[in-house]
């Protein structure tokens, strides 16, 4: 299991790095998906199969599919690749690089530090997480769910059209197009109200 852990971990790191440096958005997304799958394997080898499967279902399977969905509709061409190339300018790496190096140093310190030293907290399993969420923090969980509900209602409101309103708009537009493009005089005026002269 130790070997599988390290293989999956290395794949996760490589994929995440590739994800950042890819110029094509879809390729970057695919590397991110593979990174999630590798992370799921890491969870599994650490003895958390439930978290591993949830990682695949929620992140790799649902959220990333939505990303791909949006990406498909945007029709990103060569110009976007040029912009990406400009963004990945070597100078842009300096700031994040320094911050990431600090984090890496901190991680190395934590791993090397003896187990009893201050700053090292005991492990928290999924059961403790569940008990904490639905025990003392129940109010917080409920508030978050209210927020999500508000988001859903808001999205629904933005996407809602009065039935009939849209159809008449389409009808007007299409009859106009017929008149312009094909010179179809017969059906060009179907949207005109019947009571006007």
């Amino acid at each position: 299991m130790v070997l599988t852990f390290y293989v999956a971990a290395v794949i996760a790191v490589i994929c995440t790095a590739l994800m950042i440096t890819r110029l094509k958005a879809v390729h970057a997304l695919l590397y991110l998906v593979v990174s999630f799958l590798a992370l799921a394997t890491v969870f599994y080898t650490l003895g958390a199969p439930y978290v591993a499967v949830l990682e695949v279902i929620v992140y790799a399977g649902a959220i990333m599919v939505l990303f791909v969905f949006v990406m498909m509709m945007l029709n990103i061409g060569d110009r976007a690749i040029q912009i990406e190339r400009a963004w990945l300018d070597p100078k842009a790496w300096i700031g994040p690089g320094i911050l990431a190096a600090i984090l890496l140093a901190e991680l190395a310190y934590i791993l090397v530090a003896p187990a009893g030293s201050p700053g090292i907290v005991p492990e928290v399993g999924p059961k403790e997480v569940g008990i904490a969420l639905f025990g003392p923090y129940l109010l917080g969980v409920e508030l978050v769910s209210m927020l999500l509900l508000a988001g859903i209602v808001g999205a629904y409101h933005l996407g809602w059209n009065a039935p009939g309103e849209v159809e008449s708009l389409y009808a007007m537009e299409s009859s106009r197009q017929r008149a312009v493009v094909s010179g179809d005089f017969v059906r060009a005026g179907v949207d005109r109200p019947t009571d006007t002269p």
């Binding site: 695949v56 279902i57 399977g61 649902a62």
Partner: peptide, 11 residues
Amino acid sequence: LFILAMSSLGV
């Protein structure tokens, strides 16, 4: 859950 995960990757 494993089967559900695989079917969601099939998309």
